[in-house]
Nucleic acid binder design. Structure first.
Lengths: 144, 144
DNA sequence: GGCAGTCGCAACGTTAATTGTTACGACAGT
DNA sequence: ACTGTCGTAACAATTAACGTTGCGACTGCC
């Protein structure tokens, strides 16, 4: 099973903030988003902190604090979000380095590496095709 | 970080068996493969058990027991292996179901689902382009 | 018939990553 | 000063992957 719900939650948070701002509000709080995503506000703050480092959102402190978009949803793709929150590769190599004295043990990692790089490239390409505005539109189009 | 070294290990095992058979041996034991992959024989047996269910390898018991290929490496793609060993999706949804009373919480999962399905489709397509014979060739081509 | 080598499988322990929770200081507007 | 929220650290809880041990089942050979 995959381990990665971060991209899902990040998209959820961005769509939520975007919709909230369209309704005329200035900022959204981590608690509001956490309620919608059914998780803890700290989890949301951590995640949005990564998105802030990537320049996708901004945060304000003090009274009336909260989060706002740093760019239009139209100019944000899922690839931007993916790169902001996903550090590692999709497929992993051996956890312990294979026997370098064996021909296969020696050559398998570079062989798989090149395949995995090609795969990840297509994944990035596919994610880059979807903007967060697309996501929000689809969210609103979901049947009741 | 990704969690998935199963595809890597499975490709390693298949390449190993394929090469060993090319050298004139009938069967390979899980212990030989485990030594090359630097892991435990039981891990290899579990993995090859999944590949056997998918019809990629066969096992023999009793004296002279071990594993052999059920098909030519040329006719086996990484997609076959991937489908045999990877049960779940690449990207996960929320671990706790989001607030269905919220518009975003309600619509986010179908919206992301369709994106994820498209991404997985391209991954499958890319994996289908590589045969295990390609992998073994690349393994043997690795610089010393 | 007994022996030896290997698979089949279950049970359990180990490790690592993610996620959830609590706590508290920093900040800024009222 | 007070209030509400972020920022961050520390730790607990949960989960999945991986490793290990043990033992029965199978089969060819002596």
């Amino acid at each position: 099973m995959s381990a990665n719900s971060k991209l899902t939650i990040a998209a959820h948070a961005l769509a939520w903030i975007g919709l909230y701002q369209r309704q005329g509000h200035e900022v959204a709080t981590s608690e509001q988003i956490a309620t919608s995503a059914n998780t803890n506000p700290v989890v949301i703050r951590r995640l949005l902190g990564e998105l802030r480092r990537a320049g996708l959102v901004e945060s304000r402190r003090g009274v009336g604090a909260g989060w706002s978009l740093a760019r239009e949803l139209e100019s944000m793709t899922l690839l931007d979000v993916y790169e902001a929150v996903e550090p590692g590769p999709l497929f992993a190599m051996h956890r312990a380095t294979p026997d370098q004295g064996c021909v296969v043990g020696h050559g398998i990692q570079p062989a798989m590496q090149s395949v995995y790089e090609a795969v990840e490239e297509t994944v990035r390409h596919e994610l880059a095709r979807v903007t967060l505005a697309n996501v929000l539109r689809d969210v609103l189009a979901a049947p009741r």
